[in-house]
Amino acid sequence: MIGVALAVALGGAVGSVLRFLSASWVAAQWPRHFYLGTFTVNIIGCLLIGLLSGLFLLRSDLPIELRSGLIIGLLGGFTTFSSFSLELFKLFENGRTYEALAYLLCSVLGGVAAVWAGISLARLYQ
């Protein structure tokens, strides 16, 4: 159990730093659209969680430390649903209703589509 907890902690640290770097880079490129950094990491994270989940279904022999470290730790630290919720609230609060609705729809539908794509990619290896 300690090994799994350490793998999750290490993965979470790496994922959080990757989220910070990715979101900062995107925000620097498009400052008015501050939410695009979170959107980008959420879509990438959803794709990766789908892909890894699909691959781990095929390879249940892989160590639980590896699977937990990547799914719970790395991708849990990388994706940012709570940040997404706060940014969505701010868009609505600032009267940017159409932009907020587009962000909501694209994030949710894009995330589900990315998970589907990741699992579909993993199934190609069956």
Rank of each mutant, 00 (worst) to 15 (best):
G3F: 02
V4C: 11
A5Q: 08
A7P: 10
A9Y: 13
A9F: 15
A9E: 08
L10S: 11
L10R: 06
A13M: 15
G15F: 08
S16P: 02
S16C: 05
R19G: 09
S22D: 10
S22F: 05
A23C: 14
S24D: 13
W25C: 04
A27C: 12
A27L: 13
A28K: 04
Q29P: 06
W30G: 12
P31M: 12
P31H: 11
R32C: 09
H33Q: 15
F34C: 01
F34E: 04
Y35G: 04
L36R: 09
L36Y: 10
G37C: 14
T38D: 13
V41I: 15
V41A: 12
N42P: 08
I43G: 02
I43P: 04
I44Y: 07
I44D: 11
L47E: 04
I49E: 12
G50S: 02
G50N: 02
L55C: 05
L55F: 04
F56C: 05
L57Y: 01
L57G: 02
L58N: 02
R59H: 01
S60F: 12
D61K: 00
L62G: 02
L62Q: 01
L62H: 02
P63I: 03
E65H: 01
E65M: 07
L66V: 15
S68F: 00
S68L: 02
G69H: 03
I71H: 01
I71D: 00
G73F: 03
G73D: 04
L74T: 01
L74M: 13
L75Q: 09
G76W: 01
G77V: 14
G77Y: 15
T79N: 06
T79Q: 07
T80Q: 13
F81S: 08
F81C: 10
S83V: 06
F84L: 10
S85E: 10
S85V: 07
S85L: 15
L86W: 14
E87H: 08
L88M: 15
L88K: 09
L91H: 05
F92T: 09
G95V: 13
G95Y: 03
R96I: 05
R96N: 11
T97W: 01
A100C: 08
A100F: 08
A102E: 07
A102R: 11
L104K: 07
C106W: 06
S107V: 03
V108L: 10
G111T: 13
V112H: 08
V112D: 06
A113F: 14
A114H: 14
V115M: 15
W116D: 14
I119P: 07
A122W: 00
A122S: 04
A122Q: 01
R123V: 03
R123I: 02
